[in-house]
Simulated assay, not measured.
Amino acid sequence: MSDLMFFTNPMSRGRIVRMMLEEVGAEYATTVLEYGPEMRSSEYLAINPMAKVPAIVHRGTVVTEAAAICAYLADVYPDAGLAPPPTERGAYYRWLFFGAGPVEAAVTNATFNIDTSDPQIRGRVGYGDLASVLDTLEGVMSDREWLLGERFSAVDVYLGSQVAWGMMFGTIEKRPAFESYAARLRERPAIQRAAAKDDALMPPQGG
C-alpha cells in the first residue's frame, strides 16, 4: 500500500492536487471516486465527512481542501522548493489564503448572480466584489513572473489553477496579465503530466 493515497475525480479540484503531486515528485496511488454513492460510502466519509474530493491520506494523516493539501505537500516534500522558509512566508500565506477565500467566494457568488453591490452586503462578504478581487490579482500578476516573484511555489499551483480555469469556463474575465501568467503555468512539465493523467481518466465524449 502506498504511503500517499490520493482521492479524486478528474472533473474536480482534484486536478489542482494532481498538479501539486507531480510538482513535488511524490509517489502516490490514485483512487477515482464517482460523484454520488461512491463519495458517500462509509469508507470515504471516514476520510472526508463532506463527501467531496480531493483528499489525501499520507502515512495516516488525512488532509482535505485543495489549498491545505498544496501547503501540506510543499512542507512534506521540502526538496521540491515549493514553499519559502517559514520566516519568509508572508506573501506565500497571503496569496494562498486570498485564493482560498476572496477568489473562491467572489467567483462562486458571481457565477450564481449573487449581487454584492449594496454597500451593507459589500462590507459583510469580506471580498467586496469580483472586480476588486480581479483588480488585486491583476496588480500582482502584471509585474512578476510568479506570485512570489521569480520563485514558483505552491501558491502558483493553487491560485494559478483558479485563474486559468476561471478564464476557460468564463467565470474570470480574460486580461492580458492573466493570460500570460496562465500560459507560463501550462508550460511547466509537471502541470502537463498532471493534465495528461487526469484527461486520461475523463469519461468518453459522445456515445
Rank of each mutant, 00 (worst) to 15 (best):
A177Y: 15
M202L: 14
P10S: 03
D198P: 02
E145V: 03
N48T: 10
Y181F: 13
E104A: 12
A182N: 07
D135Y: 08
A131I: 12
S12E: 04
S153P: 01
P119M: 03
L96N: 04
I191L: 14
A83R: 06
N109S: 14
F98S: 11
Y127R: 04
R13K: 04
E173C: 10
K197D: 07
G25L: 07
P119H: 06
H58V: 01
A100E: 13
Y77M: 01
V17L: 02
V63N: 01
R59E: 14
L185I: 07
E150V: 03
A29I: 01
A183W: 06
G36L: 09
Q162I: 11
E22Q: 05
P37C: 05
G25R: 05
G60W: 14
T87Y: 11
L185V: 04
E65S: 03
M1C: 11
T171C: 03
V53C: 09
Y77G: 00
G166M: 04
D156S: 14
D75Q: 13
E22P: 00
M11L: 15
M11C: 15
E38G: 01
V157F: 06
L130F: 05
D156Q: 14
R193T: 01
E65Y: 03
L96G: 07
Y44I: 10
A71E: 11
G166Y: 05
G166H: 08
D3S: 08
R151V: 12
L137E: 05
Y72G: 08
A106F: 07
T171V: 13
V140A: 11
I172Y: 01
A131K: 13
A26V: 00
M11V: 13
A83N: 02
D199S: 14
M5N: 07
A164V: 15
G160K: 08
E145F: 00
A74Q: 05
P86K: 10
M50P: 00
N113A: 14
T30G: 00
G81I: 10
D115A: 12
T108I: 13
A66V: 02
M202T: 14
T108R: 13
D199A: 15
A66F: 00
G128Q: 12
V17Q: 02
G170H: 14
A67W: 03
G166W: 02
G207H: 12
F7W: 02
S142Q: 13
G123A: 10
L21P: 01
T136V: 12
R13W: 01
V63K: 00
P203A: 05
R188N: 09
V155F: 02
F97L: 15
M202W: 05
A91T: 10
V107R: 08
S12P: 06
F7Q: 02
G60R: 08
A190G: 03
E187W: 06
A74R: 04
S2K: 02
I114T: 10
S142Y: 12
V76K: 00
K174C: 10
K52A: 07
D75V: 05
P189L: 07
A80Q: 06
R186S: 14
E173Y: 04
G101K: 07
Y28G: 00
D115W: 06
M20G: 03
S41H: 02
M202C: 14
M141Q: 08
